[in-house]
Amino acid sequence: MLFLDFEKPLEDLYTQINKLKEMSVKNKIDVSTSIRELETAIENTRTQIYANLSPWQRVQLSRHPERPYTLYYIERIFTDFTEIFGDRQVKDDKAMVGGMAMLNNQPVMVLGQQKGTNTKTRQLRNFGMANPEGYRKALRLMKIAEKFNHPIITFIDTPGAFPGLEAEERGQAEAIARNLFEMVNLQVPVICIIIGEGASGGALGIGIGDKVAMLANTWYTVISPENCSTILWRSWDFKEKAASQLKLTSQDMINFALVDDVIPEPVGGAHTDPEKMAEILKSYLIDAINDLKQINPQIRIDNRIEKFSKMGFYDDVSIEQEVLKA
């Protein structure tokens, strides 16, 4: 098991348990009572740590190397998955995966950014940073779903759209902008789930939905805390502060009504019990699709536009002036 820095007390407890077990095997002593005690201690410590996570700690959790990625959820939640590839223009982007699948006998199109699990696949997946062809592939898949009147599910997990030379040549900005515009008008239900990192336009590029939900230990904002620190504090060292200032946690985002739901994770994060996480997510998706299918497509689109139109804060001084006059 891999522990993050703030999980040090947990790591110590696990080390103690392992030592005890070794001892009992060597010396043939019964240590089951001590082990049970330690296990209770682990549960308590875990609950305590996870009840008071700082924004930066949640960012760390969202990037936990053992955290389940898009393809894991696809495999766990859906049946009859047929992966489809390519944007029909340039190439297939391995950072964006997707395909046709069944969710409880309901045909759906499912897609999302995919990260790698070891050095080799991390490179293959470009660390979950899609190029323009990834966004165009995503849109192509969504258009197929729309044509055949099947709901769309997107899983968002990216440190950002890839800032590369070829990405610029092939119009990264245009690809993302086009997706925003087209997703607004999709005739079918669209559900977007932030399962890890939700960084900036790269996340939003597949993030316009009737329901946008975040797993509890994920973040979603305009820039990563590290880059924000570099730009605004001119140093990498203020990432914790930037994370707090950005108000990027799922709880902040639901309080601001910038997302529709927060989906709880098993205590200790999705990676501690991926199967349980998949189960929770599956039931959320089934409910969400059933709800959205009840709504007339045009009303669904109107609601979508209405929802995003409300986002923003400003003062209207004309109202204030009228109040002053009165």
């Binding site: 925003l180 900036s200 336009g201 316009i208 305009v222 990027l248 536009i305």
Partner: peptide
């Protein structure tokens, strides 16, 4: 985007694109 408005500034991308439709 204006970082000091965090996710609200990000959502202006969605908001303006939606209105342009």
């Amino acid at each position: 985007a204006r970082m000091m408005e965090s996710a609200f500034s990000l959502m202006q991308m969605a908001k303006t694109a939606a209105r342009l439709t």
